[in-house]
Design a protein around this nucleic acid. Structure first.
Length: 564
RNA sequence: UGGGACGUCGCCAAGCUGGUUAAGGCACGGGGUUUUGAUCCCCGCAUUCGCAGGUUCGAGUCCUGCCGUCCCAGCCA
């Protein structure tokens, strides 16, 4: 491990428990695993699990395996394995071993035989529907299968032949012989092996029988000497089965399962099934669409591994269900980038301004700090000319009293330059303002004594002649309700926010930004944090807004309009 | 109605075997600094721990009962 997080990680029940166990000498070190099924991309919810697993192992002197739970070839694909590895590595974690449940198929098969030989498993020839009916309900016990008392030798023979491919898919299954009357339905003779003629991405056609999750997971943990098998709450009911199998099998170690609550966030969906639908049905551009809560999407959007790790640490680990506001993740990004991102100026929606007393054809270069609080980040030179662009939002013809930006007859400071006064407006045939004519105060240049003069507002700008045209993509929440998946009546896609993506095709960037590479990030002053998008070409820069700056003014504005 | 789990400030979340005034973060409110209405810095922010009883000198922490929420009846994971 390597990824550093907060200095003092908050206490949580798993950390506390492990620390106590170590103190008691129950383990020498902690070995964990992150066990994704390769049937989709990783999302922010997985990040919580990844951070937890790697943190526990790292803090207690062990390591973490990356293990693919590939027991169902029907839905698993190599491309998902590749993306998962990329995402875990990008988050900043290095796994000790790359493992696959499928690597243990032979051992698992031997374990199954062991169960059979000890009279603890049997071959059931009933179909799925019959087994389901016999299982009983939440309130009624199940009934024994007519095959439950099949002699050991016969079970053995049938299982051997199952593997040999003598039977058709679904013809029979191997079931654990536990208790059909158990209150816990997982203990009502759960299926351990099923026949499935499906090509496996790793074992090819070697097998036509595949172990179920319950049979594969705990035993894989034991084989890898995992000390703590951390999983989410929905597996709590499986723990008795997990323990039963470990207890009755000649496994090399005895792992324990500990459950914690999964991550939920508002205004998004987190289940792999729903995310897959968004991709497959074209509601988003792909798994790496910047609006997706997938790791790939967040990465493309501009989130940093640090911000995601800090977020996962900050939200804590408990057994209580919670819904974290999406804004918490965004704030973690701001906190990270505020310190590290070089500042630049960019105008998203340009409004032309002519500085009437600025010499025509002249270019002045102003020295600008790359970071207002961190002089180590150096300075750069930015050109200013007679014609510049400012943000359309930074001018109002009829402005409210608290509007500190430019208005007719008003003054404002051009960031890093000088104070200007708006003298005139130029309109087009439709009466729209298409240009401002301003004069600047020579004595108020940055660095001169007159720069001390205070004006209410400071706005950013870019030299018209030098500006780089670019496309800028702004993102808003993917859904317009807090809990899109929680609607009983409406399909969650009905809650998709039609305005989640806004493309600005006429943005003007400070020169130099066209050189930006994937992986770099910037604060466009007063606007937010932006990163180059892979869609960019040498001729056409494309930037994504990862997150806005905190905007107290927008909040006030909203309050004012709501109050009036 | 069976089993498993959870319920501490608007959102997260500490709180071990019961013992002074119920951590911390975020959000929020107020003030200060500021050529980003950003950042940063101060200050404020639960007589109360789902509810009701009980045990105790003393309970968020123990007991009883109730209420609410989530998960489980795939040959998915």
């Amino acid at each position: 491990m390597n990824a550093s997080t907060s200095p003092t990680p908050p206490a949580h029940f798993i950390r506390t428990r492990i620390a106590r166990e170590l103190a008691q000498g129950l383990h020498e070190r902690v070995i964990t695993r992150f066990p994704p099924e390769p049937n989709g991309y990783l999302h922010i919810g997985h990040a919580k699990s990844i951070v937890l697993n790697f943190a526990m192992a790292a803090e207690f002197g062990g390591y973490t395996n990356l293990r693919f739970d590939d027991t169902n070839p029907e839905r698993e694909e190599q491309r998902f394995i590749d993306s998962i590895k990329q995402d875990v590595a990008w988050l900043g974690y290095q796994w000790e071993n790359e493992c696959y449940a499928s690597d243990y198929f032979e051992t698992l098969y031997a374990y199954a035989l062991h169960l059979i030989e000890h009279g603890l498993a049997y071959i059931d020839e009933q179909d799925a529907e019959t087994i389901r009916q016999q299982r009983g309900t939440l309130t009624e016990p199940g009934r024994n299968s007519p095959f439950r008392e099949r002699p050991i030798e016969e079970n053995r023979d049938l299982f051997l032949r199952m593997r040999a491919g003598e039977f058709t898919d679904g013809a029979m299954v191997l079931r654990a012989k536990i208790d059909m009357a158990a209150a816990n339905i997982n203990l009502r003779d759960p299926v351990l092996y099923r026949i499935r003629r499906e090509h496996h991405q790793r074992t090819g056609d070697d097998w036509c029988i595949y172990p179920s999750y319950d049979f594969a997971h705990g035993q894989s943990d034991a084989i890898e000497h995992i000390t703590h098998s951390l999983c989410t709450l929905e597996f709590e009911d499986h723990r008795p089965l997990y323990d039963w199998l470990i207890e009755h099998l000649p496994v090399p170690s005895r792992p324990v399962q500990i459950e914690f609550s999964r991550l939920n966030m508002d205004f998004t969906v987190m289940s792999k099934r729903r995310l897959t639908r968004l991709v497959d049905e074209g509601f988003v551009a792909g798994w790496d669409d910047p609006r997706m809560p997938s790791i790939a999407g967040l990465r493309r959007r501009g989130f940093t591994p640090e911000s995601i790790r800090n977020f996962c640490t900050e939200i804590g680990v408990t057994k209580s269900e919670s819904i974290i506001p999406f804004g918490v993740l965004e704030r973690n990004l701001r906190d990270d980038l505020n310190v590290r991102a070089p500042r630049r100026m960019a105008v998203l929606k340009p409004l032309k301004v002519v500085l009437t007393n600025f010499p025509e054809g002249q270019t002045e270069w102003v020295e600008v700090a790359n970071h207002p609080q961190d002089s180590a980040m150096g300075t750069r030179r930015v050109p200013i000319t007679r014609e510049i662009f400012i943000e359309q939002d930074d001018f109002m013809e009829e402005a409210p009293k608290k509007f500190f930006r430019l208005k007719p007859g008003g003054e404002v400071r051009l960031r890093n330059a000088f104070i200007i006064r708006c003298d005139d407006l130029v309109r087009n045939g439709d009466g729209e303002i298409i240009e401002l004519r301003c004069s600047f105060d020579e004595s108020s240049r940055s660095g001169l004594p007159g720069a001390e003069r205070k004006v209410k507002g400071t706005i950013h700008w870019v030299s018209a002649e030098h500006a780089v045209g670019a496309e800028v993509r702004l993102y808003d929440r993917l859904f317009n309700v807090p809990h899109p998946a929680g609607d009983k009546e409406l399909d969650f896609v009905e809650h998709l926010n039609p305005e989640s993506l806004e493309i600005l095709s006429d943005a003007r960037l400070e020169p130099g930004l066209e050189q930006a590479r994937i992986g770099e990030f910037f604060q466009f002053e007063r606007l937010g944090y932006f990163v180059p998008d892979p869609d960019a070409t040498p001729q056409r820069p494309v930037f994504n807004r990862a997150v806005t700056l905190r905007d107290t003014w927008a909040r006030l504005e909203a309050q004012m309009s709501a109050g009036s």
